[in-house]
């Protein structure tokens, strides 16, 4: 089958509303959305805490967070695989080959990205922002929320980058999820599977959906930001 034929077949699959195509898309979105939400709750405060820590702690924390942004997905998958396997320290949780295990993997990939960008953004806020919050007696917790929100577009970029990273990753998803049909099969894992089976049309169909969702969310959010920015000027 030529590439053009495969592409045509892929479009037909999408247009027909092939059940597996949409199931897999839903699983991908669900796993990544939960992982992203959890990573936001954990990663942003970590970035803020490192940014506002005393110099020695901040230097080590910043180095660590930025280094971890390059964590290979396969290594995260393997590490958690050994942790969740029957003989591993978390084996009792019986999470291997579940969506929860996939969420854990994506969570670990997203936290350093969110933390590192939040850290840089908070550090680049004017010193007056920090001093004003302190002198007005804003509590520590509210100060964190206030200053993180103050970084505005940088936080939006952090969330988008983290989403793009985990939604399109394959290594951790395939190792931790096991690519089980109807359970842990995602867009990336099914693309790898169909490609290895030689079903180019199905692989391309999934690839197109992955592309549309990943680029579509990025494009829509950045477009909304540009539109709002344009309205302010």
């Amino acid at each position: 089958m030529s590439l053009v034929d495969a592409f045509g077949e892929a479009l037909k699959l999408i247009a027909r509303g092939d059940a597996e195509v949409w199931d897999v898309t839903a699983v991908s979105l669900q796993v990544s959305a939960i992982a992203l939400l959890l990573a936001i709750v954990v990663g942003l405060p970590i970035g803020y805490a490192v940014a506002t820590a005393r110099r020695s702690v901040a230097s080590v924390g910043s180095w660590l967070l930025h280094t971890l942004t390059a964590l290979p997905t396969v290594v995260v998958g393997l590490t958690l695989y050994f942790a969740f396997s029957a003989a591993g320290p978390l084996g009792w949780m019986d999470l291997l080959y579940t969506r929860t295990a996939m969420v854990a993997g994506q969570f670990l990939l997203a936290v350093p990205i969110l933390g590192a960008i939040a850290l840089t953004a908070v550090r680049h806020l004017p010193v007056e922002a920090h001093e004003t919050a302190v002198t007005l007696g804003v509590s520590r917790r509210l100060r964190m929320q206030l200053l993180l929100l103050e970084t505005g577009p940088a936080l939006g970029s952090a969330v988008l980058l983290a989403f793009a990273r985990i939604f399109t990753e394959l290594g951790a998803a395939v190792i931790l999820g096991g690519n089980i049909r109807g359970q842990t099969r995602t867009l990336t894992t099914v693309i790898a599977l169909e490609y290895s089976k030689g079903d180019d049309a199905r692989a391309i169909a999934m690839g197109l959906i992955l592309l549309v969702v990943a680029l579509g969310i990025n494009g829509a959010v950045h477009g909304a930001g540009l539109w709002r920015g344009g309205n302010h000027t």
Binding site: E128, A129, T132, V134, L136, G137, V138, L146
Partner: peptide, 29 residues
């Protein structure tokens, strides 16, 4: 430091993103 104590105002006060109301209501007291 802070409300009911010593409060500092910058030469160009820093106003947080949001309304004037938001800026007034972040003051803990």
């Amino acid at each position: 430091q802070g409300p009911a104590g010593a409060v500092f105002v910058h030469s160009t006060p820093y106003l947080f993103a949001g309304t004037v109301r938001h800026n007034m209501q972040i003051v803990s007291r």
